[in-house]
């Protein structure tokens, strides 16, 4: 007689003597490598003999090829998919150019651009950045920082970085504002009124091509993903299913990376960055001495230097001779003055 448990053990033993199937591992390994892996063990070979498996693998390979061709072909021709453009960046750039004409003595203003004259067309994607150096009185430093923050907020922007020392020997620092591209010029003008402008530099970079490239790549990859999803629904073997799934995962990852780049670029286009460097008058603007004062200080310095040199080079003998001569002259002139005084009294 045999119990249920013993019978179960008997059947289980019979089942477990069946060799461990390798097909699952082989299928997974093949799918991880590529759609058409090198020849492997027989389970995979059997899978490959399946005509639908062949068809799916071939379609998968064609889809991947289509992605590559589409991305390469569309990089220069497809339209941008970034919806937010910055047409106002061009006027800002133009006004910045006009600002160059208002340069005052001692103030440097640089305007550089890769946008060239096409920026004026107003249909470009422009990234505008600027650097402003201001000299402010130390008592007004805190107020200026608060004002800069107010300027950014009132224009719909924000303070992205603020690193300012309000006390101590190294008072001053940097405040970086992010302002809407259309308000960049206004932000510059309001910020420069908060102190004495020492330096202004603005840069406008045309990224229209970059935006178009990213948009084209995302479009091509999305189209490829759609095709792969259709293939996935028709996959006839596990190997084909896994292969197409891996391709979809890979394409999806590429799409997400490109979309992240698009978001960063769109933000840079929408918001211009204005860096305001703040410094104290004592540190950067010491009062300039007059020419007479300079000459006097030079003369004194030279006399002191000459005496020191004479003393050092002649030694005690020469110094004593000079001292005796000086004393002799004093006695001579003093004696003559005394004799003149006495003679007048006697006469």
């Amino acid at each position: 007689m045999i119990t249920d448990g013993e019978f179960s053990a008997l059947i289980t033993e019979a089942a477990e003597t069946i060799p461990e199937p390798t097909a699952a591992d082989a299928i997974l390994a093949a799918a991880r490598v590529e759609i058409d892996p090198p020849s492997v063990a027989s389970p995979i070979a059997k899978v490959r003999r399946h005509p639908r498996g062949f068809a799916i693998s071939a379609l998968g390979a064609a889809a991947v090829l289509a992605i590559v061709i589409a991305v390469a072909a569309s990089s220069s021709s497809s339209p941008s998919r970034i919806t937010h453009r910055a047409p106002d960046a061009a006027p800002a750039y133009g006004e910045a150019l006009q600002k160059t004409a208002r340069v005052t003595a001692g103030v440097t203003k640089n305007v550089t651009s890769s946008a060239s004259s096409t920026a004026a067309a107003g249909s470009q994607d422009i990234i505008t950045t600027g650097t402003l150096s201001l000299v402010v009185h130390e008592s007004a430093l805190g107020h200026v920082v608060a004002e800069l923050q107010a300027i950014a907020t009132s224009l719909g922007g924000y303070v992205s970085t603020s690193n300012v020392a309000l006390a101590g020997s190294s008072r001053g620092g940097t405040v970086v504002l992010g302002v809407p591209a259309g308000e960049f010029e206004k932000a510059v003008s309001e910020a420069e009124s908060l102190g004495t402008l020492k330096h202004l530099s603005t840069t406008a970079t045309d990224v229209t091509g970059q935006v178009a490239d990213l948009g084209a790549q995302v479009s091509a990859l999305e189209a490829a993903r759609t095709q792969l999803e259709a293939l996935f629904a028709r996959a006839g073997t596990i190997q084909a299913l896994l292969s197409v799934q891996n391709e979809i995962t890979s394409v999806q990852s590429q799409i997400q990376q490109l979309q992240a780049q698009q978001r960063v670029l769109a933000n840079e286009i929408s918001f211009s960055s204005l860096t305001v460097a703040l410094a104290m008058p004592s540190a950067t603007h010491a009062s300039a001495p007059s020419r007479f004062s300079k000459a006097w200080h030079q003369a004194v310095s030279h006399v002191e230097g000459g005496l020191a040199t004479l003393l050092a080079d002649s030694g005690i003998v020469l110094f004593s001779v000079v001292l005796l001569v000086v004393l002799g002259l004093i006695v001579l002139f003093g004696g003559r003055l005394l004799w003149s005084f006495v003679r007048r009294r006697l006469v």
Binding site: A15, I18, A24, L28, R225, E229, L241
Partner: peptide
Amino acid sequence: MVTDTNPGELEELLQQWYTPAYRTAAL
């Protein structure tokens, strides 16, 4: 939708169930 699933879901399914399923089918 394919992209809404965990990419390793099928692998997990295979790894957990392939051997017992294969032996059952073999019997």
